[in-house]
Amino acid sequence: MIPSAFEYHRPADVASAVKLLAELGDDARVLAGGHSLIPMMKLRMAELEHLVDLQAVAELKAISVEDGTVSLGAMVTQHDLIDSEELFRAAPILRETALQIADPQVRYMGTIGGNVANGDPGNDMPGLMQCLGATYVLEGPEGRREVAARDFYEAAYMTDRADDEILVQVRFAATTGGYAYEKQKRKIGDYATAAAAVLIEAEGGTVTRASIAMTNVSDTPVWSEAAADALTGTTCDDAALQAAVDAMLADIDPQEDNRGPIEFKRHLAGVILQRAIARAFQRA
C-alpha cells in the first residue's frame, strides 16, 4: 500500500495555510492528524498533488476554557483532549468520547479538527459536536466564518467547508449536568456500530434540558431534537425512554455493512441510546 506522489507543504500559520490552499486549488488537501487521510492515500482511494500539513501551526493547538466557552484549536489531538484536566472539568463527555476512539497511537496523532472536518459518518466527534451544539470556525481567503456543527454535514464526506477553507477551531459551551457517550463497536479501533451522545440537565428528578445525537447510523451525524424533547419534562421513566428512542429512530437511516443489517442497527441504536440516557440521567 503505497500512496501516489505529492508535494508537501508545512505552513507556520493559518494565513499561510489558507493562502497555499487558494493557490493550489482542488489538488491540495489539508493534513491534520492524517489517520483517516493517509490510509485512504495508501489505498489510492485519495490521490492528491499537494499536502498541506498543519502540524507547525501553533495557534491551532490551543485549548481554552473562558467564560463558560470551550475553544479547541483544530490541531488539538484526541490524546490532548483526554489529558486535559481543564477540559474534563468543563465538558467531561469529551474525554469519555475520545477514549472510545481508535487506539492510543492513533489518538496521539488524530486531531479534533481532522475528526470533525473529514465528514466521515463513522467518526465520533461530529456526533458529539451535534450534541454539544458546537460551532466550527472556518478560515478561507475571505476571512473567518462560523457555522453550526448541526448545519455542517451534508452527506458522507460532504460538508459545508469549501475546498479553500480550513476548519481552525471548534467551540461550544461548557456542560453542566449528566453526560454519556455510549458506543458499541466490534473491537478497539473500530468505528461505531451505533453510538449515542447524551447530555441531560435535571432538577428534582425531572429533566429540564437534554441534547441527543447519534453516530454512524446515517450518512451524517444525527442530532435528534425530537428525542431530546421527548425527555424534557419527564423523569426519564420507561415511557419517556421509549418516546425518545422512537423519536431518534425516525431521524436515523442506517445502512447495512459488515457490522450488521439495518434491522439490527436500528434496534441497537435504540438500546445504545437508552443506556446512554440512563447513564447521563444518573449523572445529572
Partner: peptide, 11 residues
C-alpha cells in the same frame, strides 16, 4: 458469533 449474529439469535 459477532454482535449482529448473536443479536439475531436472540431476535
Amino acid at each position: 458469533h459477532d454482535h449482529w449474529r448473536v443479536w439475531k439469535i436472540a431476535h
